[in-house]
Computed example of a mutant assay.
Amino acid sequence: MCSIDFGFIRDFVKHVREKSSSDNIFCCGEYWEDSATTVNKYLDDIGVQFTVFDAPLHYNFKEAGEAKSAFDLRKIWDGTIVQSRPVDAVTLVDNHDTQVGQALESWVSSGFKPLAYAMILLRLDGYPCVFYGDLYGCGGKNPQQPVTQLEDFIRARKLGLLGPSQLCWLGTDRRGESSRWLCSLFHVSTSQVVLCNGSEGVKTMEVGKEHAGEVWTDVLGWHTGEVTIGEDGRAEFRCPAESVSIWVNKDAHGRDEFSKAK
């Protein structure tokens, strides 16, 4: 859905960059379609680097939040702009149009929002955008509570807890008929981010032998236990049901900035 001709957008972006003598000026617009194929064609037609809001990702978040443990988290990025052209994607969870009572109402469930924000804020690809209403709450006829400790997710990004490497899926935890996929968003030595969209999950992950003996805790405080890194650089990390854990060395710089710092 676009109300401005793509030719005008193309010429406008070219003009601004030419007049500023810089090809690095950030330009963003809203082309709200849930089809990555349609959005990619639009960006191709513009013919210059241009960034759009990742509507397909928003709808994946909505679907995952409604399906809960029935949704395979490995597919959360499928058909998204950030997957196909990360430099052109502004990643988001909700906005003023998707909130309850608005024209494009497709509100992501409150229970899934912490997972969704962990995915966009602790991932290197894309330009994450935080909705004011999720950070401070929504008033009016359809009030919504703010996302719990969203400021700590932002703080984790600010302090560099996201990693420079690619997304890694580390496996599944199976019990009986159920299957819950966990993910380490950034498999690096500085942190481990674990998400679970089912019941409580656990996964053994490697952080590096140089961290042997260190004690790590969840900076969110949602998992109250401690993890000691083994001599082989591996440890067992847990995540509460339908939740997120961000495991970091308890003595890491900036730990005292978190609202539930231990």
Rank of each mutant, 00 (worst) to 15 (best):
P146S: 09
V52P: 02
T228P: 01
V93S: 04
A36L: 01
G137C: 01
E177V: 02
E151H: 12
D97N: 09
G213I: 14
S243Y: 13
R85F: 00
K68R: 13
S110W: 12
D256A: 02
A241H: 10
Q99I: 13
D173M: 04
H223M: 05
P56Q: 04
A67Y: 03
G79C: 07
G254C: 04
T204C: 01
N24F: 00
E105G: 03
G201D: 08
L195T: 14
E231A: 07
S178V: 09
R17D: 07
L92V: 14
G233C: 04
D152G: 13
D152K: 13
V193C: 11
Y132G: 03
E177M: 02
Q49S: 04
K62Y: 13
K260R: 12
S199A: 12
L121H: 09
A89V: 02
G140M: 06
N40C: 07
V108C: 11
S109M: 13
A64E: 11
A212W: 04
R123N: 14
D134Q: 10
V48G: 00
F61Y: 15
T37H: 08
L124T: 02
K113D: 14
W77M: 14
G29F: 10
I46P: 04
K209M: 06
Q166E: 09
I229D: 06
V244C: 15
K19W: 03
P146T: 13
G201L: 10
G198M: 09
C27K: 00
W247N: 02
G198T: 07
R234C: 09
L162G: 05
H187V: 03
A235H: 07
F26K: 01
A116M: 08
W222R: 12
L104T: 08
T80K: 11
V130A: 03
L124G: 01
V100W: 00
K158E: 14
H223N: 15
S106R: 04
D34R: 06
H211Y: 01
D78L: 01
G79W: 13
I4R: 02
Q49R: 05
E200Q: 15
D218F: 14
E33W: 11
W32H: 06
N60L: 14
A67H: 05
N40D: 05
S184T: 02
V202K: 12
A55E: 07
W107C: 14
T91C: 12
L92M: 12
K250I: 06
Q144V: 15
F6R: 00
K113Y: 03
E177N: 14
S184F: 01
S69T: 10
G133D: 11
C28N: 08
V13F: 07
R255V: 14
P240K: 15
D78E: 10
F61I: 07
